[in-house]
Design a protein around this nucleic acid. Sequence first.
DNA 1: AGTCAATAGTTGCATATACAACTATATCTG
DNA 2: CAGATATAGTTGTATATGCAACTATTGACT
Lengths: 151, 151
Amino acid sequence: MNPKPDELHLNAWRLFITAHATLIDTIDRELTTADCIPLHWYDVLVELVEAPDHRLRLYELADKVILSRSGLTRLVDKLENAGLLKREPNPEDRRGYYAVLTEAGYAALRKAWPIYAAGIQSHFAVHLSDDEAAIFSRVLRQILKSRQAAE
Amino acid sequence: MNPKPDELHLNAWRLFITAHATLIDTIDRELTTADCIPLHWYDVLVELVEAPDHRLRLYELADKVILSRSGLTRLVDKLENAGLLKREPNPEDRRGYYAVLTEAGYAALRKAWPIYAAGIQSHFAVHLSDDEAAIFSRVLRQILKSRQAAE
DNA sequence: AGTCAATAGTTGCATATACAACTATATCTG
DNA sequence: CAGATATAGTTGTATATGCAACTATTGACT
């Protein structure tokens, strides 16, 4: 057991936190300024668009966007109210529902994507070479995997 | 202007978001389980401990921890109530206050640090070689700098 | 089948945080 | 130096989110 991070790693950690906060802040602001859905809504909808049949069980969605069950319930309420997804009962398990992307939800994604992509590009991606992006991905994936294994 | 991030960079971005969320979640949980101050309080106090004279103007603190002014007012209220810092009026500018670390605040930092350090080490630092940590720091610092320049 | 434990989702409550409006003080400009 | 403008901090209000308690359903063990 290595108990303490050295200066180099500690520094990386602190920058990680701060850079994250400013990036999310900046990009979320750009989205709302452009009259698009907020970043959190985007994250939810993009999981749906990538899911088979454009649908996911609510608990799967909660896991993917790292939100508590109750938090997800209320977020889904709002998205459903806004018409961007709908709940559909699951015939095989009557406890649960699917969240299903609607056409309006897909349209909201399409509208937000250029703004979001421009933000990712200009505030984040421009600062990483291809090699660095690959390193980021590899390291972060490993961090995630080790967290998931710990459950 | 590069309008869109490629797959590689987009992937790095998404992992960045997800890894951050799980890491903060995990470490904050470990701190509260060990009966320590939460991560956000830690961040505030550590800025004070590193500041000259263990004191910072409230607006400086707000900037450092990336919190709105109102958010900071209330956070400082709580920390002051808990006895971990105190407000001191500034004789040179009667609009403003310093937040000053107290002995109890310093003790709270010392108590939390081993838990926090162990979390950073085991969930984050172990996954980065020295070279990778250096790359992370360099890239993230550049991202931050470019954001600060944009103000 | 019958009971007990586990799971899916929702709701009540407490806390966190942002924005806008406000007060007090400082600074700038003519 | 007077008035306009900017800044530091606080407060009202709205939204977001977690935890614990709850209902409904499923699954597992006997």
